[in-house]
């Protein structure tokens, strides 16, 4: 067989196989609703390390089949210039950890956000610190590392438009997507 034709055939076969798997999966698990307030630029693949189609895997041995979705997870808030997990954040993360442990098929991306007062560059780094702090807390609470990816959003995607402390407090956050 001509090499190009061979490659095309293999590719088509692979795509068909992936499609079949995708269809089967749809029957096995309820489709995840798109996150509210999502923007056109938000990534749709919560775990970029995986290849397409394998973000949920209902056949993992010992996995638990909860029905929770990412929208059931609480948003975590931070103090000014801080990425430490305070008392309120701990309680919210404990609840999130419980839910993630009970739904080990649920894969999430923790998105770290900042208020508008730092510079663009600093906030991109701070957003990653916040996302990483949330991930580390969840791992410490027994959540599987395979369930959590992280992403920084800096100050580019405020939850609330406003230029006062009440707006800033709502924007210093880690969201689950």
């Amino acid at each position: 067989m001509h090499p190009t034709l061979l490659r095309t055939t293999v590719l088509v076969t692979a795509v068909l196989a992936m499609f079949a798997v995708g269809c089967a999966k749809k029957g096995a698990t309820p489709p995840t609703p798109p996150p509210a307030g999502n923007t056109t630029t938000a990534p749709t693949n919560p775990n970029p390390g995986n290849t397409g189609g394998t973000t949920t895997n209902p056949t993992t041995p010992g996995s638990q089949q909860g029905t929770a979705t990412v929208t059931d997870l609480r948003t975590i808030y931070f103090a000014v210039d801080s990425y430490s997990i305070d008392g309120t954040a701990q309680a919210d993360l404990d609840a999130n950890a419980k839910l993630l442990r009970a739904n080990s098929n649920l894969r999430v991306t923790v998105e770290g956000h900042c208020d508008e007062r730092g510079t663009v560059e600093y906030n991109l780094a701070l957003g990653q610190k916040r996302a990483d702090a949330v991930r580390d807390y969840l791992l410490g609470a027994g959540v599987s590392a395979a369930q959590i990816a992280t992403l920084t959003r800096g100050k580019e995607f405020p939850a609330v438009d406003g230029h006062d402390e009440s707006a800033w407090a709502k924007n210093r956050r880690a969201e689950f997507k």
């Binding site: 630029t41 990534p43 749709t44 693949n45 970029p48 991109l124 992403l151 920084t152 800096g154 580019e156």
Partner: peptide, 10 residues
């Protein structure tokens, strides 16, 4: 330039 155009991280 820095961009989210790749769909994931900057």
């Amino acid at each position: 330039f820095t961009s989210y155009r790749g769909g994931g991280a900057p």
